[in-house]
Simulated assay, not measured.
Amino acid sequence: MARYTGPKSKVARRFREPIFGPDKALERKNYPPGFHGPNKRRSKQSEYSIQLLEKQKAKYTYGILERQFANLFDKAQRKMGITGELLLQFCEARLDNVVYRMGISPTRSGARQLVGHRHITVNGEMVNIPSYSLKPGDKVGVRERSKSMEVITNSLTSGATNKHDWYEFNRSSMTGTYIQHPTRDQIPENIKEQLIVELYSK
């Protein structure tokens, strides 16, 4: 299963946002990485550069590689509706993202690992594909034999679940329901999806 395994702090500093979660390196060095540090004179970014950075930020945020992301954009473009909003909806509907949103894992990369290691079920059946696209009404849960795993119990007890209206989750049973695709205002990520649409439309 291909995934990004490079330095995450440098990526977060490039976008000046904690896209992989809380990052002490980002707090200490809130400027882009590079040899000259904060004193380097930054040249004015072109329109293409700004659009490309926004696409890269979305890819890193959701842990999606280039080909997968391009396929999601094609899917969004073919469907009736606002392409940019549909693109983010498809990203949010990924199984690994929903596992993260429900609080079963504190990070998307951790959620991807739980799915890949067969700890998550959809409608009672084990699913080990992180990119599996959920449909409204799908039931997501932790496999019975995996409910005592320390990484899962710690995630559910260490902090409050980020509750959103488009899914439900019961901590005691470790099961939830993907109610509906989220609208744009229900997606908290700081992504300017219109820039991505403009990039792919060139």
Results as ranks from 00 to 15, higher is better:
142 V>M: 11
44 K>Q: 13
24 K>I: 09
46 S>H: 04
145 R>E: 14
200 Y>C: 05
49 S>P: 00
65 L>V: 05
104 I>K: 09
130 P>S: 14
21 G>I: 02
60 Y>C: 10
125 E>G: 01
165 D>I: 03
129 I>G: 02
179 I>N: 11
77 Q>V: 05
54 E>Y: 07
191 I>V: 13
67 R>N: 12
197 V>I: 14
18 P>I: 02
82 I>M: 10
11 V>N: 08
97 N>R: 10
44 K>E: 14
152 I>R: 10
99 V>D: 00
103 G>S: 11
178 Y>S: 04
149 M>G: 01
42 R>M: 07
122 V>E: 06
91 C>L: 13
98 V>E: 08
198 E>C: 08
100 Y>R: 01
141 G>W: 06
92 E>W: 04
117 H>A: 03
3 R>I: 10
193 E>T: 15
121 T>Q: 13
70 A>H: 08
4 Y>N: 13
141 G>E: 04
42 R>V: 11
187 I>L: 10
174 M>S: 02
93 A>W: 00
162 N>Q: 11
141 G>P: 05
20 F>T: 05
33 P>T: 03
192 K>A: 12
143 R>H: 09
104 I>E: 09
133 S>A: 10
112 R>Y: 01
58 A>P: 02
110 G>Q: 05
164 H>G: 12
103 G>E: 14
15 F>M: 06
130 P>Q: 14
185 D>F: 07
90 F>S: 15
60 Y>V: 06
115 V>D: 01
37 G>V: 11
115 V>C: 01
57 K>C: 10
89 Q>M: 14
174 M>E: 03
141 G>M: 06
102 M>Q: 06
71 N>C: 03
143 R>T: 03
126 M>Y: 06
2 A>D: 11
155 S>A: 15
35 F>R: 08
106 P>F: 00
155 S>P: 08
115 V>E: 02
76 A>I: 02
164 H>V: 04
180 Q>P: 00
195 L>G: 14
83 T>H: 05
74 D>V: 04
193 E>D: 14
11 V>L: 09
59 K>N: 04
47 E>Q: 10
107 T>V: 04
76 A>S: 15
11 V>E: 12
113 Q>N: 06
136 P>S: 09
55 K>A: 05
137 G>E: 09
44 K>A: 06
21 G>R: 04
84 G>K: 05
